[in-house]
Design a protein around this nucleic acid. Structure first.
Lengths: 191, 191
DNA sequence: CCCGTCCTTTTACAAATGTTAAAAAATCAA
DNA sequence: TTGATTTTTTAACATTTGTAAAAGGACGGG
């Protein structure tokens, strides 16, 4: 019994993997515990690692005029990568931060890509994972493009009701593309 | 000599393909000419086809309170898919429309996915294509999330200076997430 | 327990954007 | 060209959201 079993199980639901394939992935996985409010990766670093959240909660954020803007929240089993750095080999303008005590699973990208030659099933797995990430981003962009902030907040609450208990409002506000003052107003109006 | 040569060449730059792989893809490609302002795919249809623009110009749009919102523009060789329908097998709330007389290249998704078993190189090609699309969407979301409309307009002009000659301002406005009135004001202020 | 820090709300005001309507300009077809 | 249609601009006003500052709460360290 390995404590990455539930993670492997999660992967196999996306794409069934042979025992050999599973072992190959496992051999690349390392667990990285990060304390609450600490960064897993800092702004300015090139991203060479694909991360998942094993337990805890994390976000990607960047700085806009000195203010932190949250781009993405990752919960258990969620993929968390800085795609614009990883797939373009450029330094990232974003950081990955643990919002709770969090254990990440890290997979070195180069080593993983090498596995693709040997295991087509693993390439397929990650193709599907990226497809899902892509679809999620398209859907989120639609929301942010033309829905007023109040709708976006309501929608977020409907999708992830427990979010509000685990994440501070200022992070939620910047994720919604508004200020925390504005979010406070929205909450007051709903109440 | 086949008139899809330039398209094949475009694909091979992303991922080199064997002659057999190239033939396999070609055998699935059909060309679909659509007249200006006509829809290639309508709202409500399930999307089962992966499209590229061979020549011309197209967009994806949806209706928000009866008003058309442009989600995406596709120029020559650009991928144009309604990802949330294609990868989730749901009816799309979006339409694909030709903004000029346009020739699309269509590849049936199911048949393509079957090729993946036979040609790992083709699966890799489409993995990379989706990765690129994903990165582009992440970057666009960052822009729309926290940059004011005026910046987004300036950035769009810098990236695609010829866009303004080919696309009406109302479409550009909705792509930027603002009304056409607002875009007119921005243009007047810059002038 | 108290203090300081950080988070959240509230207030007042400013700026940006939406809405509606109408005018001006451009486009297109007969 | 003319007339009809569409696109773009302009105007006036309403609404939303941002900014800055202050006040109240929550929370942890000493």
């Amino acid at each position: 019994m390995n404590d990455l079993d539930s993670f492997l199980n999660f992967l196999c639901k996306i794409q069934p993997l042979s025992p050999e394939g599973q072992d190959a992935i496992l051999s690349l996985c390392s667990q990285v515990p990060i304390a609450k409010n600490q960064n897993l990766q800092d702004i300015g670093q090139k991203c060479h690692t694909i991360y998942f959240v094993k337990e805890g909660l994390a976000r990607i954020f960047y700085l806009k005029d000195g203010i932190e803007v949250t781009e993405y929240f990752a919960f258990e089993n969620d993929l968390i990568i800085r795609a614009e750095s990883l797939f373009r080999d450029k330094p990232s303008t974003k950081a990955i931060q643990a919002l709770e005590n969090t254990v990440f699973i890290g997979i070195p990208a180069e080593a993983l890509f090498s596995l693709f030659d040997q295991f087509a099933e693993i390439e397929r797995l990650f193709r599907k994972i990226i497809e899902q990430a892509y679809v999620n981003t398209v859907i989120r962009m639609e929301a942010i493009q033309f829905h007023p902030a109040e709708e976006r907040y309501a929608q977020l609450l409907a999708e992830k009701p427990n979010l509000i208990q685990r994440i501070s409002l200022k992070h939620i506000a910047s994720y919604l593309g508004i200020t925390q003052v504005s979010l406070s107003r929205i909450r007051a109006a709903v109440r």
